[in-house]
């Protein structure tokens, strides 16, 4: 028996490669190769290369270790950017989630016939490329000739230098980000709302809950999952936002609207210090990695619980 087996395996040695090829795991791996190449080429390589870049001097001729990072720590502008990024992300996400929730609730209460129209209309900001729509907003914010200040003048109110005063520039950047991002929350929350069984609300009405009590005892707990995930996800995306600030203010006035990515672009590309720019953008990494970790853990835990 064992002889036969050996003989058999010797005889088909040339075809053992094909047997290996036909194993499920091999096929799976081969099918993943294109994706792996894309991830390596577009994520892993740039990431590792930017780590390497961040350890060089401005002329990229000398290894300086963590010199660039130490330099950044001493720069006031850098800490301003850190503060701004955090404020920007938290405030924008809070309002996106709030507005998305209110809009989802309102749409959910109207009869299903009319829902499609509203859903479609409210999704428009989300489907326009943000660089384009921001250009539109930029026009609206234009101080002398444009709509917003014209309205203020019509009501005999003082005009606002939208993009040239720190508070209003930050306000404008956040406003546009909220305008662009709220529809995402809207659809996520609408889907979550629709998945809550009607019977729970009926049982709650009989148990004696008012609308507010239903919101806090049924709706919010049932949506806890999706709220946590969308908020964390949105914090990551908002934190790394680039196009809105880039188009609207270019980080001005006096760097007071810069975020990590726009600041990295300013330092690295526009000022020509690529290693320093790489160091700025790498600062985002640990922050985003921690958030992503929290999300994944959250998802897994809740998946296990349910």
């Amino acid at each position: 028996m064992s002889k036969l087996k050996r003989k058999y395996s010797n005889g088909v040695r040339s075809s053992s490669f094909f047997i290996w090829l036909r194993q499920r795991s091999t096929i799976a791996f081969i099918m993943c190769v294109p994706l792996l190449l894309i991830v390596i080429g577009l994520v892993a390589y740039p990431f590792l290369y930017s780590i390497f870049l961040s350890t060089l001097n401005k002329a990229e001729t000398e290894f300086v270790g963590i010199g660039n990072y130490l330099f950044l720590f001493k720069r006031e502008t850098f800490w301003l950017v850190v503060k701004q990024s955090i404020i920007f992300a938290l405030v924008a996400v809070f309002f996106k989630a709030l507005i998305g929730f209110i809009a989802a609730h309102s749409i959910n209460t109207i009869p299903s016939k009319g829902q499609r129209k509203w859903r479609g209309a409210l999704l428009i900001p989300w489907v326009i490329p943000p660089a384009l729509s921001t250009l539109g907003w930029w026009w609206l914010f234009e101080p002398t000739y444009s709509a917003l200040n014209w309205i203020l003048t019509e009501f005999a109110l003082p005009t606002i230098p939208w993009l040239s005063e720190t508070f209003w520039a930050r306000f404008a950047v956040i406003l546009v980000n909220v305008w662009f991002g709220a529809p995402f929350f809207l659809i996520m929350y609408l889907a979550a709302l629709k998945s809550i069984p009607e019977h729970l609300y009926e049982a709650a009405s009989i148990d004696g809950a008012s609308s507010i009590q239903k919101l806090f005892h049924i709706t919010l707990p049932m949506m806890r999952n999706i709220i946590a995930i969308t908020v964390l996800f949105s914090i990551i995306v908002t934190f790394a936002n680039f196009d809105i600030v880039r188009v609207l203010t270019q980080g001005g006035p006096l760097n007071t609207t810069h975020l990590f990515s726009t600041y990295a672009f300013r330092v690295g590309i526009e000022s020509g210090d690529i290693p320093l720019g790489a160091s700025v953008s790498l600062f985002m990494f640990p922050i985003l990695a921690i958030l992503a970790f929290i999300i994944l853990r959250n998802v897994r835990e809740r998946a296990l619980n349910s």
């Binding site: 069984p197 019977h199 729970l200 009926e202 049982a203 709650a204 009989i206 005892h217 049932m222």
Partner: peptide, 10 residues
Amino acid sequence: MVFQSYALYP
């Protein structure tokens, strides 16, 4: 009321 789907708060 007792519902067909029980309607317990999960």
